[in-house]
């Protein structure tokens, strides 16, 4: 088990380093279209082959990893922080505050996000650089993705609200704010961590779907989401199975995250 964890950690570090130094490692620029060899098979020049426009899939995968591995956890962190605050306060305070907060999360989850995102796109200027579109995309994901986590956190906090140690802390004269921050939140860490971890792949996939609304990472920047959309072309995947690499990498990275950052470490 320990060996497995170490391997997973080593793999993650390798992926992060590869993504970080993508600029040095890639054989060719990620956006360069080799128009004479679209849909190429893996070769010495194109390690994973090329996409429909002749762009090197290996380069795109490395750059896409850089974007997704950095921004999806960042968005997830943002969502988890908001969820911790909303859910923690609601569950701990209880009463009308909890009802309002739960109503808020219900509303947030039942909102027609599709239309809200369309509205958001309508408000944004058309001439966004790909980098700006990228940041906005993940910021939106973070801001909109907290509701489900907040409910879980709220339920957890509600359980802690009536616990003896909260009573004991109160009896010691600790203020509500400090009890929430110092006593309740540390106990929610495993739940928060789980929510954080669950959100990462969800956000990576959501980003892919946002592309359909003109909100995702825009051309020519690659992202895992964008690369996964490439799998819709099944006949191309059949022709070149190396195209499954983004999916494989996503699965492996997410499992490695699970292995390395085990929940037990957060709950003594």
């Amino acid at each position: 088990m320990k060996l497995l964890r170490r391997t997973a950690a080593a793999f993650l570090i390798a992926v992060f380093i590869a993504a970080l130094f993508a600029g040095v490692l890639v054989p060719v620029p990620y956006a360069k279209q080799f128009r004479d060899s679209p849909n190429a098979m893996p070769s010495r020049i194109h390690l994973l082959g090329t996409d429909e426009l002749g762009r090197d899939l290996f380069s795109r995968l490395l750059y896409g990893s850089r974007i997704s591995l950095l921004l999806a956890p960042a968005a997830s962190l943002l969502a988890t922080i908001i969820a911790a605050l909303v859910g923690g306060v609601a569950g701990y305070a209880g009463g009308w505050l909890e009802r309002i907060a739960l109503g808020g999360t219900d509303l947030a989850m039942s909102l027609p996000w599709l239309f809200l995102l369309l509205a958001a796109r309508a408000v944004l200027p058309l001439n966004l650089s790909p980098a700006a579109s990228l940041l906005i995309t993940f910021a939106l994901l973070g801001f909109f993705g907290w509701a489900a986590s907040a409910r879980v956190i709220c339920a957890g906090a509600r359980g802690l609200r009536d616990s003896d140690f909260v009573l004991q802390a109160k009896a010691c004269g600790c203020s509500s704010r400090r009890v929430l921050l110092q006593q309740v939140l540390p106990n929610l860490r495993p739940a928060l961590f789980a929510q954080f971890l669950i959100s990462i792949p969800v956000f990576i996939l959501t980003e892919a779907n946002l592309g359909i609304l003109g909100l995702g990472v825009s051309e020519p920047l690659p992202s895992w989401g964008g690369l996964l959309r490439g799998l819709e072309n099944w006949s191309a995947v059949q022709a070149n199975p190396a195209r499954l690499a983004p999916l494989l990498l996503l699965l492996v990275v997410v499992s490695c995250f699970q292995l390395v950052l085990r929940q037990e470490d957060f709950a003594p």
């Binding site: 369309l118 650089s129 592309g211 003109g214």
Partner: peptide, 8 residues
């Protein structure tokens, strides 16, 4: 510089 925007 061309920015691509896909819309519904």
């Amino acid at each position: 510089r061309l920015n691509i925007v896909t819309l519904d």
